[in-house]
């Protein structure tokens, strides 16, 4: 499977070129266009997985994803599939080579069918104050992973400590640990400064951040919308 990204970074989409027999698991609604040689299967579990997968599907829902997964399998050679995120922003490719990548709820867009996607609880404090979903998606296995963001994505190589504002996290390697703390030295200063709470990452690994924050955008835009 080959891939290329179009219209980066403001309105990115991914175009996949797949050979006969190759499959890709996508979030529901991600497909924008495709050639006719695809078989589409919708399930609550990973393709070829055993059992109903309803428990994991429900957990995925809490993480901001859909109950169902769409599996696209090319039934003819040289097929093209275009997928894109719901929000305006960037898409990225992450080659998973063992280990796990922790992905913010709504940032998972597609992955190889061999990759296990499970929701993982982040703890009550992080769930309430991280600015992200109550659950994170834990992607485990080997293969290609495609993620999306609101705004552009940038990568940070963490070795020690790194601080990110809440709501700006896309994904991070499982070797990183994060905690919630106040942005400044005092609580009052933190909130008056507009930063409030931030996420402190510790350890060694890669962190992917988005340049824009969906809740802040919603708070800015919401009051300007006319009531329906």
């Amino acid at each position: 499977m080959d891939y290329e990204f179009l219209s980066q970074p403001a309105a990115s989409v991914a175009r996949m070129t797949m050979e006969e027999g190759e499959s890709l698991t996508c979030e529901v609604g991600a497909m924008i266009a495709m050639t006719t040689g695809f078989e589409v299967e919708t399930t609550t579990r990973k393709r070829g997985g055993k059992g109903g997968g309803l428990g994991k599907a429900l957990k995925r829902m809490f993480a901001g994803e859909s109950l169902f997964l769409n599996h696209f399998t090319a039934t003819e050679p040289d097929q093209s599939l275009i997928i894109g995120p719901q929000m305006l922003g960037d898409v990225m490719h992450f080659p998973l080579t063992g280990g796990s990548l922790i992905v913010q709820g709504s940032s998972w867009m597609a992955s190889d069918t061999d990759i296990e996607i499970d929701a993982t609880w982040q703890g009550l404090g992080k769930a309430l104050f991280s600015g992200e979903s109550m659950f994170w998606l834990k992607c485990t296995g080997e293969g290609d992973l495609f993620l999306s963001s609101f705004g552009a994505i940038y990568e940070v190589e963490v070795d020690g400590d790194h601080i990110v504002d809440t709501g700006h996290i896309v994904a991070f390697e499982d070797t990183l640990q994060f905690s919630i703390e106040k942005a400044g030295s005092s609580w009052i200063g933190s909130f008056l400064g507009g930063e409030g709470l931030v996420c402190r990452f510790q350890g060694q690994g890669r962190l992917f951040c988005q340049t824009h924050n969906p809740p802040s955008f919603g708070q800015t835009l919401g009051p300007k919308l006319k009531p329906r």
């Binding site: 796990s100 499982d174 990183l176 640990q177 994060f178 350890g203 060694q204």
Partner: peptide, 18 residues
């Protein structure tokens, strides 16, 4: 030796210069 990671259960063994 350090402990950490996402779930705080990973064991990391590093050399002196990391």
């Amino acid at each position: 030796v350090e402990m950490g990671g996402f779930n705080n259960k990973m064991v990391f063994c590093r050399n002196e210069d990391r």
